[in-house]
Simulated scan of single mutants.
Amino acid sequence: MNDADLKAAHAMLADGTFTVNEVAKRLNISPATLYRYLPAARATINCKVSL
């Protein structure tokens, strides 16, 4: 992942309308890779589940 991908992933997750799986699919990476580069993505999912 490059800086542009990281910024795009962060923006999509911050928006709250995309899941980690959807973001990963749009970036052509696995969800595990997204979690590796953006550990906060896991926290985003936990917040959505608890709501």
Rank of each mutant, 00 (worst) to 15 (best):
M1Q: 10
M1K: 10
N2I: 08
N2S: 05
N2E: 10
D3N: 11
D3F: 03
D3I: 06
D3C: 00
D3K: 10
D3W: 01
D3S: 11
A4G: 11
D5K: 15
D5E: 13
D5Q: 15
D5G: 11
L6R: 15
L6Q: 11
K7C: 11
K7V: 11
K7D: 11
K7M: 14
A8F: 08
A8E: 11
A8H: 08
A8N: 06
A9N: 06
A9R: 04
A9T: 06
H10F: 12
A11K: 11
A11R: 10
A11L: 13
A11D: 13
A11V: 12
M12V: 02
M12K: 14
M12G: 03
M12Y: 10
M12S: 02
M12F: 06
L13T: 01
L13I: 02
L13G: 01
L13W: 00
L13E: 00
A14T: 07
A14W: 04
A14V: 01
D15K: 14
D15T: 09
D15I: 07
D15L: 09
D15E: 14
D15R: 12
G16R: 08
G16L: 05
T17Q: 15
F18Y: 14
T19E: 03
T19K: 03
V20G: 08
V20R: 12
V20Y: 06
N21A: 15
N21Q: 14
N21V: 12
N21I: 11
N21P: 10
E22K: 10
E22W: 01
E22C: 00
E22Y: 02
V23D: 05
V23H: 06
V23C: 04
V23K: 04
V23Q: 05
A24W: 09
K25Y: 09
K25V: 02
K25N: 12
K25G: 01
K25F: 09
R26V: 03
R26F: 02
R26M: 04
L27K: 08
L27H: 06
L27W: 05
L27F: 07
N28W: 03
N28E: 12
N28I: 02
N28C: 05
I29M: 07
I29Q: 02
S30D: 01
S30I: 01
S30F: 03
S30M: 03
S30Q: 01
P31Q: 14
P31L: 13
P31F: 12
A32N: 13
A32L: 14
T33W: 02
T33H: 07
L34P: 05
L34Q: 04
Y35Q: 04
R36F: 04
R36Y: 10
R36I: 02
Y37H: 12
Y37T: 03
Y37R: 09
L38V: 02
P39V: 00
P39D: 01
P39N: 00
P39K: 00
A40D: 12
A40L: 07
A40T: 07
A40G: 03
A40P: 00
A41M: 10
A41P: 04
A41E: 09
A41N: 08
R42L: 06
R42C: 02
R42V: 06
A43N: 10
A43M: 06
A43V: 07
T44G: 05
T44R: 08
T44L: 03
I45Y: 08
I45N: 04
N46L: 13
N46P: 02
C47W: 10
K48F: 06
K48E: 05
K48H: 07
V49W: 09
V49N: 13
S50I: 05
S50N: 05
S50K: 05
L51W: 11
